[in-house]
C-alpha cells in the first residue's frame, strides 16, 4: 500500500534535459529516495532517450521502494517524445496518476 497521505516532494525539472542536467538529476534523485516524489515537467522543452531511461529507472526504483512517483505538467513535446519512443504514458505516471 502506498502512503498516499504523505505529501510528495517536488523536483522541478529544468528546461533542457541534456546529459549535464541528467547527471545532476540522477544525483538529486538518489538523495530523494524514500519519499513520495513528483517531478514537475512543466518547464521541460523536450525529452530524449537518455532522459527517458533515467525517468524509467527512477519510476521503477520508486515502485520497488513502494513510494509514489509521478510526472506532472508534461507539455505536448514531452508527451509526444515519450510516445514516439514507444513507452506507455502510464509507465511513467504522467498526468499524476499513481500506480500501485
Amino acid at each position: 500500500m502506498t502512503e498516499s497521505t504523505m505529501a510528495a516532494e517536488v523536483i522541478k525539472l529544468p528546461e533542457v534535459l541534456d546529459l549535464n542536467a541528467l547527471e545532476a538529476l540522477h544525483t538529486e534523485l538518489l538523495s530523494k529516495r524514500g519519499v513520495h516524489l513528483e517531478l514537475d515537467a512543466s518547464a521541460v522543452s523536450g525529452l530524449g532517450a537518455q532522459g527517458l531511461q533515467l525517468l524509467l529507472s527512477a519510476s521503477e526504483t520508486w515502485r520497488l521502494d513502494q513510494k509514489s512517483f509521478t510526472v506532472s505538467g508534461a507539455g505536448d513535446e514531452f508527451v509526444s517524445a515519450v510516445s514516439m519512443m514507444g513507452v506507455d504514458a502510464d509507465v511513467l505516471c504522467l498526468d499524476g496518476e499513481e500506480h500501485e
Binding site: 534523485l29 529516495r33 531511461q53 526504483t61
Partner: peptide
C-alpha cells in the same frame, strides 16, 4: 537498472 546502478552515460534502451 534501478537508480543505484544507473549510469547516465550508458545506453539501456
Amino acid at each position: 537498472p534501478t537508480l543505484d546502478a544507473f549510469d547516465p552515460t550508458a545506453s539501456y534502451l
